[in-house]
């Protein structure tokens, strides 16, 4: 599903060279729910950006769904991102001027679906997150948890092969955070692969696998399920 081999990412300025990822190796299989944890500056977000093709990398190979994405141009990456990846961001990243309906519509329009198909998908995905009755509302009229649900609906509407979540509960209180986690777990159960970056070990344990990133490298891989079973 997602295979990174010896991926290296260096940020250069005139004065410093920062190795955000060094020989980063990771394989995520279909159907997994992987939580990526690690301290600030460890390279979590860089990993997520590269995994989501938001950024390019300097060395190594990255295969997404069997396709080597290392040499794709900007347009090809945009298209692939749109088709295969759903994004969930820490600060929801809804577009404030657009209604919930239009927000969920954004990636579907880039995908080129016709109006009827888009409407069906928007309604279905808002229904999944329980906000179908608020389609005409603006993001500012919703609570944080609801906004994140809209973001999840937007990520789901394109029916992506996997979801990339960047601190999806970082801005939410624990009750709302838990309900978003439940939603993600439900989505994962239905077959969508999820990679979630989080600094919260408590949430991480709810994923099927934990990855710990440190100094731009995968330093430890825990099989949470196995751990649970062993502890259970």
């Amino acid at each position: 599903m997602l295979t990174m081999t010896n991926v290296k990412k260096v940020f250069r300025t005139d004065l410093v060279e920062t190795h955000a990822l060094r020989d980063f190796n990771l394989q995520v299989d279909e159907g997994e729910f992987v939580a990526v944890t690690g301290p600030s500056g460890s390279g979590k977000t860089t990993f997520l950006n590269i995994a989501g093709m938001l950024e390019t990398f300097n060395e190594g190979t990255y295969q997404l769904d069997g396709e080597d994405v290392s040499h794709l141009n900007d347009n090809q990456r945009s298209k692939l991102r749109n088709e295969k990846i759903g994004f969930i961001f820490q600060s929801y990243n809804l577009i404030p001027d657009l209604s919930l309906f239009d927000n969920v519509d954004v990636p579907l329009r880039y995908r080129g679906f016709d109006a009827k198909e888009r409407k069906k998908r928007i309604e279905e995905s808002l229904d999944i997150v329980g906000l179908a009755n608020r389609m005409k509302h603006l993001p500012s009229q919703l609570s944080g948890g609801q906004q994140q649900r809209v973001a999840i609906a937007r990520a789901l509407a394109g029916n992506p092969r996997f979801l990339l979540a960047d601190e999806p509960t970082g801005n939410l209180d624990s009750a709302m955070a838990q309900s978003v986690m439940e939603l993600l777990k439900e989505i994962n159960k239905k077959g969508t692969t999820i990679v979630m970056v989080t600094h919260d070990p408590q949430l991480a344990t709810q994923a099927t696998r934990n990855i710990f990133v440190k100094d731009g490298q995968v330093s430890e891989i825990n099989d949470v399920v196995a751990m649970h079973v062993a502890n259970g």
Partner: peptide
């Protein structure tokens, strides 16, 4: 965000 959601430069 739009770029992340699949918008091309065009």
């Amino acid at each position: 965000i739009r770029r992340a959601l699949g918008a091309t430069k065009a």
